[in-house]
Amino acid sequence: MNPTPLWVIFVGSLFTNNILLASLLGMCSFLVCSSRVETALGLSAAVVFVMTCTTMLNYLIYYFVLLPLHLDYLSFVVFISVIAAFVQFVEMFVERFSPKLYYALGIFLPLITVNCAILGAVLFMVIRQYDFAQSTVFGFSAGLGWGLAILLMAGLREKMGYSNVPEPLRGLGILMLVTGVIAMAFMGFAGMLNVQ
């Protein structure tokens, strides 16, 4: 059992233990999809949704199927398959019943299957021994934290289009530097809260 209160988990995964800036998970889609705020917003909405749901789903599967049968060594395989299947299902569902939502974020859903932040959140949930409520809050807030980071980056990149970046740093180089600076800024929150 983990005694951390829900609000600490929420604020902590947004700022002190941001899944992208502190744990450096989900970097690939972070770098690729952060060129425009609009795209970043769609992707973060999809990540929040999928992360919340898959954390809950995988919680149930882990504690009610895998652990009682002593199959926790298979958890990685099961987690990632559940994530993939869930994303597929959601994509079909959204495409059918809400074309508007599908065009807004549906296109990002397949990308999320391979987003390691999603699997990372599920694994943190297991390692930190959260209960169901904590897992749900954690999944939601870790998704929000990831979205916050990519939105910050997208905002900066839109502005950076007008700045004169030194030739050798253009492209990935300056992105890595900027990510590092954002991460350092977030380290300023360290010590405010302690999420375990």
Binding site: I61, L66, L71, L74, V77, V78
Partner: peptide, 11 residues
């Protein structure tokens, strides 16, 4: 056997 059955069943 259980492992295979459970994983197979899940998938």
């Amino acid at each position: 056997l259980i492992a295979i059955l459970v994983i197979g069943g899940l998938f």
